[in-house]
């Protein structure tokens, strides 16, 4: 079995206008930056993007927004992107803001084959409008549906040609649950290794969830908020 493709262009060959994509990452951290660049180059449009954030103006999903390739964003926090906020307030972009845990768990539900989950997040707020509320043990919960995405696009640290993936540090974030949730899952990795090189006890995403994998080159890994302490402290 060999899931290796030549690169991002081949990996996205059948992504078409109007599709729903999940994109891993938290801010710039663990972002599938090579595949996003390929989507920008390909110019597919009317995309629905499910991703925790919307990138910054000149990196990540912000690049897709800038070219008006996104019809709808489903995110939890979009605070660092002026172009996003402009398109949202002007009505050019459809946006569904949902709680971060709800976002993660709707991915998880898809990957676990469960149609819906119940969460207390959003009870009594505008997030609850139009949703079924169920009471369990005296507390109200919202029914939230599993996501249905055409493609999930994730970034891992290492992967093998069978699609087994290992993430590094907090670049893990949404990537494992999104990897499980796509009808087709594309993984870009910093290092493609041979089967056997990853310790089976420490594989984070089993290869069964991954359909295409490639090694990206020259990761930029941009830092959004560079915070440091002085050594003399």
């Amino acid at each position: 079995m060999n899931k290796v493709v030549s690169g991002a262009d081949e990996a996205i060959r059948d992504i078409e206008d109007g599709m729903t994509l999940m994109l891993g990452g938290f801010g710039m951290c663990g972002l599938p930056e090579k595949t996003i660049l390929a989507l920008v180059k390909k110019g597919v449009k009317d995309l629905t993007c499910i991703s925790n954030n919307a990138g910054v103006d000149d990196f990540g999903i912000g690049l897709l927004l800038h070219q008006h390739q996104v019809k709808k964003m489903i995110s939890s926090y979009v605070g660092e992107n002026a172009e996003f906020e402009r398109q949202l307030l002007s009505g050019e972009l459809e946006v569904e803001l949902i709680p971060q845990g709800t976002l993660a768990t709707r991915c998880m539900a898809a990957g676990y084959g469960m149609p819906a989950i119940f969460t207390p997040a959003g009870i009594g707020t505008e997030v609850a409008i139009g949703k079924e509320v169920r009471n369990f043990n005296g507390k109200d919960y919202l029914m939230e549906m599993a996501f249905d995405a055409d493609f999930a696009i994730v970034k891992a640290w290492k992967g093998d040609r069978l699609g087994n993936l290992v993430y590094r540090s907090t670049a893990r974030n949404f990537n494992p649950v999104m990897a499980m949730a796509g009808k087709i899952t594309i993984a870009e990795v910093e290092e493609l290794v041979e089967p056997g090189e990853l310790d089976p006890d420490n594989v984070h995403t089993p290869g069964i969830y991954v359909h295409r994998i490639f090694q990206g080159e020259n990761y930029e890994k941009r830092i959004e908020q560079r915070t440091v302490r002085k050594r003399d402290n």
Binding site: F26, G27, M28, C29, G30, E80, W157, R168, S169, T170, A171, K221, R222, I223, E224, Q225, R226, T227, V228, R229, K230, R231
Partner: peptide, 20 residues
Amino acid sequence: PFPFEGEEDPDTINAGKQTI
């Protein structure tokens, strides 16, 4: 805590997207 200058790791951030 925040990393020492020069030891920032882009893969290690907090929920405020700060290097930690």
